[in-house]
Amino acid sequence: MPEENGALCFENVVITRGGKPLIALDARIEPGDVLTVMGPSGSGKSTLLNFAAGFLPPAFSAKGRVTIGGEEITRLPAHERHLGLLFQDPLLFPHISVEGNLLFAVPQHVRGRKARRERVAAALAEVELDGFGPRDPATLSGGQKARVALMRVLLAEPRALLLDEPFSRLDPDLRAQVRRLVFGKARERGLPTLLVTHDAADAESAGGVLVKIGDPA
């Protein structure tokens, strides 16, 4: 067993629905690495993410454990798991500004209005969105929204990234760009990343281990 270094591990995870096994995964994702789970819709790949993040619907049951850096997270309540989750849609909160969206994510240990705002400004600068803070999220382009959504996740200081087809709603020319950005940031910060997708190009771009799963039920 290698020494614990913040890797994301799925240990004998099996998810069943009504007694029938749906998906199984036993894998270790090193910091900065990406594991891609590829399968058609209905194959239960999103359920796997929901299980790791703590949102498994009651109709499913799961065995096995998920750990980060040796700590079992499947015992923790969802809000204490510190996972960064990116969905198909950027899901920026429409009722607050771009800056408000990002401030929402900055951890509480960053105290003081000034310090919090500085973090947000730095995050915006990091994705070339300087000065976008006061903007209404609805006025942003698709690529800008995706970048804000990514920074919102990263500002919360996650220990791992879970990506649920985050590129599938983007225009093809944007897709490659956002992909590079997301995987680059994950590597930069040494985050183990789990990507579920049905798009072979996503898997290829991720460059890590690829797990293909079954036929749709």
Binding site: A53, H82, F93, F104, P107, A156
Partner: peptide, 9 residues
Amino acid sequence: SRQLATTLG
């Protein structure tokens, strides 16, 4: 929204 807020802690 609820799930997103939860993953942010």
